[in-house]
Design a protein around this nucleic acid. Structure first.
Length: 892
DNA sequence: CGATCCCGCCACATT
DNA sequence: AATGTGGCGGGATCG
């Protein structure tokens, strides 16, 4: 069938892949104009006019429906039809001959004929895969819809997916700009990188197996927070700046889903992703509870996306047979390796330098590859992989600023975290109850969409306004201690001060300054250490792009708008860096264990590793990276190597007592070895399994986290050296969220204990049951002192905008967010609520897996490497990263 | 009967 | 308010 269709459709361009077509393309180019009837190429008309005309007639006569349909078609493209027919005929003939029956079918529009995939092929056939740079093809949705004979709604489905891959970009209302595949590889690369961060190797787990889990998720439901987490990975906004804000509405989940879906493939070792797994992963992000219906809906959407991707020749359908039987799945058949950066493209000519894929607007700035660039305005568009913020959608209204174009985007990390968690779970499967949470240290400020989560009353405004500054510094480190819940919760809000320290058992104590975190009942948490965004940012060029995008966008955007994201940036400026982690990291590094690996065990506590103290937990950069990415973008890149470190040092160290090393300059440092030097962030996690005693909680912590945090933790936690804290779930349960942040108090207040600056944490619990859970604050504190570093990044606008956690913000409102200094690193915590899905059982978990789960540092490195960029060196240098890296082996 | 997924209602966003 | 967008899920088709 396909063939058949194809022939029609694509007579001209081979849709699939091939760059080769250039020649054709050119030919095609003329077509591009939407306006013009495509005759040359002929697009595929559905009906074979000539050959079967008679039949049709008959058919139509027979069925009124058909007839109508026919009419419509005619109406739509009368012109074409007539003309085309000639050309088509030939083609058709062939086809027809092949299958006589087809004729009927054709006529009778079987469902297949109307399939989205076919429609997409037709759509794609109209445009050259590699359009000349010079030309810009604009696509009018109405026009295309009529030409193809479908409702506009269907076109949206296609365009949204294509947009997610940057094959097109929205220019205006009803108008899209066709870019072709020139940037496809870049986009994929970006997605791959982002995907690694987000999903890391989780995927591998899934892959085949895991399905088992059903998603049962917990029963909690709460969907509340609907969007919170989505973020477009890359998004583009519209050209018009004005609208920037526009994105909100649910944020185009289709677009986001599409990117995430692609990411899964890119990250997957097998390159095969089953629908159910993808659905689960995607779901969790969004929400938790996955009811069955939701799952179903998600799957439906995935089919839509898959159809388009299939038409693009990026995936193909396959079945995987597992225990349960065979499941539908898709295999990635597109490019796997991407050239370095940029550019390249698959194709052909690549866009010559001159050409821009992008629509237009700006060309210059953006490199071709940058996807974002395309965007016309930077702001509007850009993609930010990372973090998007979830909340925005709703919020945005509040803010309403016209200008801010983007708000949206941020988001995300949380979701990632969530995803990870989810994934983990799945893998793990086990415990039903457990939930995982992940913390990120830094990065994502935005991510979190905490707001949404937050119960706080005011949210609406949330963050945006309030926090702009950013609380989050993002720095790696940060996470100080977590406090738990119980008591705190109440406090938390206020919190700043108290620090609680946690005790080992779950007792959380407050740490001074530290922000509090509450965990919901969930069982597992992952904490990720901070990553340094800085590095990342800087480092990655390519990736950087992404980041930049986001970053840029942010920059562009009004601070407010940025809010969340901004936070990242903010951090940088302020200096917050500190966190990093020096010491901690080192430790962690030392640990070497697996970097990310989790520790699992049943005995978690004991796990030596953890104890080892150091942070080990695992550090794995990867995760962090992921986060970082997001963060990064915003954050600090600017910071530039130097700064960041410095910042860190100064602040962090100073403040923190511990810090050891602020420096880090040397790349080599000890641990660092691994690849990553560059990597900015390494995430480290500690995973504690809940086993026995712990059953209730599991955390992953990132080692990185702020030193401070660690330190605290460490001390407190006996067993775990890691920063992990255990909290009894029960206790936690009660609180939904917590925030604490110390924001206010600047370092001064509590220097040491607290992390230095900031550590803000965010948790997003998206899933958590109720909405409540959530977030955390952080603190960032920055001292003015710090200022030294404060340098503002040039890039970054000065504003430190950061996001504070909402809660914090409020609570702290007073706080100085404003102050220039803000810094905090945000940490994000995610919780997974997903109970349903797979509970984890301790048993299931194995180290091996762990590894899988998390990438080794080495792996991380790679991505990093990608980053390319000039500045790598420095970046690399960042001590933090290095440290982190330590643990695992270097990729090489 | 489960896998697919078309179709189009309808909410939300933008104009 | 009109129109653009796009979530969403009922229920038809396919296999």
């Amino acid at each position: 069938e396909n063939i058949f269709d194809r022939s029609r459709m694509a007579p001209k361009t081979p849709i699939k892949s091939e760059p080769v077509d250039l020649s054709k393309q050119k030919a095609c180019t003329p077509e591009r104009n939407p306006i013009t009837p495509v005759k040359l190429v002929d697009k595929p008309q559905p009906d074979p006019w000539t050959p079967t005309a008679n039949l049709k007639m008959l058919v139509s006569a027979a069925s009124p429906d058909m007839r109508d349909r026919e009419k419509k078609k005619e109406l739509f493209r009368p012109i074409e039809n007539s003309k085309q027919s000639d050309t088509l005929d030939l083609l058709q003939y062939d086809m027809v001959n092949d299958s006589t029956v087809d004729e009927f079918e054709k006529q009778r529009p079987s469902r297949k004929q109307k399939s989205l995939g076919l429609l997409c092929q037709k759509f794609l056939a109209r445009y050259p895969s590699y359009p000349l740079s010079t030309e810009k093809t604009t696509i009018s949705l109405d026009e295309v819809a009529s030409i193809l004979g479908v409702e506009r709604r269907r076109i949206y489905d296609i365009v949204n997916v294509l947009e997610s891959l940057h094959l097109v970009s929205r220019v205006a209302k009803n108008q899209y700009c066709w870019h072709g595949r020139h940037n496809l590889s870049q986009t994929l690369k970006t997605l791959q990188e982002a995907g690694e961060l987000q999903y890391g190797e989780l995927i591998t787990f899934f892959q085949p197996k895991e399905q088992d889990l059903e998603y049962k998720f917990g029963e909690r439901k709460k969907e509340t927070i609907p969007n919170s987490q989505d973020r477009p990975l890359l998004d583009f906004s519209e050209p018009d700046c004005t609208s920037a804000s526009a994105n909100s509405r649910k944020d185009k989940s289709l677009r986001i889903m599409s990117q995430k879906f692609v990411m899964l493939f890119l990250v997957s070792k097998t390159k095969i992703v089953t629908l159910d797994i993808a659905a689960k992963i995607l779901i969790e992000e969004t929400q938790d509870t996955v009811d069955h219906s939701k799952f179903k809906t998600k799957v439906r959407r995935l089919y839509d996306i898959a159809n388009v991707l299939t038409s693009l020749g990026l995936i193909k359908k396959v079945h995987v047979t597992e225990e349960r039987g065979r499941k539908p799945a898709f295999k990635w058949i597109g490019p796997v390796e991407f050239p370095g950066k940029t550019g390249n493209l698959d194709g052909p000519r690549g866009h010559s330098p001159t050409s821009d894929p992008l629509p237009g607007t700006q060309r210059g700035a953006c490199a071709p590859y940058q996807i974002c660039a395309t965007g016309k305005q930077r702001f509007t568009r850009h993609a930010s992989f990372n973090g998007a913020q979830p909340c925005e959608g709703t919020r945005r209204k509040v803010s309403s600023e016209p200008s801010s174009p983007h708000q949206k985007r941020q988001d995300g990390y949380c979701s990632k975290m969530i995803n990870l968690a989810a994934v983990c779970r799945q893998k793990i499967k086990e415990d039903t109850c457990a939930t995982q949470t992940i913390l990120n240290s830094a990065k994502n400020p935005s991510i979190t969409s905490p707001f949404s989560l937050l119960p706080l009353p005011g949210d609406s405004d949330f963050c945006v306004n309030p926090l702009p500054q950013a609380v989050f510094p993002v720095v790696q480190t940060d996470v100080p201690s977590l406090s738990l819940p119980n008591g705190f919760s109440s406090q938390a809000p206020h919190l700043s001060t108290p620090a609680a320290s946690k005790t080992e058992n779950g007792k959380p104590t407050l740490l001074p300054n530290q922000p509090l975190l509450c965990f919901p009942s969930s069982s597992l948490f992952m904490l990720c250490g901070g990553l340094q965004e800085n590095n990342l940012k800087e480092t990655l060029p390519t990736t950087a792009d992404m980041r930049n995008w986001s970053g840029e966008s942010q920059a562009a955007v009004p601070p407010a708008a940025c809010q969340k994201r901004s936070s990242h940036k903010c951090a940088s400026p302020s200096a917050p860096v500190d966190d990093d982690e020096p010491a901690a990291k080192k430790q962690s590094m030392k640990q070497s264990d697996v970097p990310l690996s989790l520790v699992l065990p049943k005995k978690p506590f004991e796990s030596p590793k953890a104890e080892s103290t150091l942070g080990h937990g695992c550090t794995s950069a990867e995760h962090l990276e992921v986060f970082h990415l997001d963060l990064a973008s915003p954050a600090t890149p600017e910071a530039a190597d130097e700064e960041s470190p410095k910042l860190l040092d100064s602040q962090g160290q100073e403040k923190l007592s511990q810090k050891k090393d602020p420096d880090e300059p040397s790349p080599g440092k000890e641990h660092i070895s691994k690849e990553n030097a560059n990597q900015p962030f390494l995430p480290q996690y500690l995973y504690v399994q809940p086993t026995a005693g712990l059953s209730s909680f599991n955390f992953l912590f990132s080692a990185n986290q702020a030193p401070g945090a660690i330190s605290l933790a460490v001390s407190q936690l006996p067993s775990l050296s890691v920063p992990c804290v255990v909290v009894p779930s029960a206790a936690l349960a009660s609180f939904p969220l917590v925030c604490s942040s110390t924001i206010t108090s600047p370092l001064s207040s509590v220097p040491d204990g607290s992390f230095s600056a900031t550590a803000s944490m965010n948790f997003s619990m998206s899933g958590l049951a109720s909405t409540t859970p959530v977030f955390i604050g952080t603190t960032a504190v920055v001292t003015p002192k710090v200022s030294s570093t404060p340098s503002v990044d040039p890039q970054q606008p000065a504003h430190p905008a950061l996001h504070l956690s909402p809660g914090l913000a409020r609570s702290c409102s007073a706080v100085k967010l404003d102050s220039p200094v803000c810094m905090g690193h945000p940490v994000t915590l995610l919780q997974m609520q997903q109970p349903s899905s797979a509970p984890l059982t301790p048993k299931s978990i194995r180290p091996a897996r762990h590894e899988v789960f998390f990438k080794t540092p080495g792996s991380l490195g790679d991505p990093v490497a990608w980053k390319k960029n000039e500045g790598n060196q420095t970046r690399n240098a960042s001590s933090v990263q290095r440290r982190l890296e330590i643990s695992s082996t270097s990729p090489d």
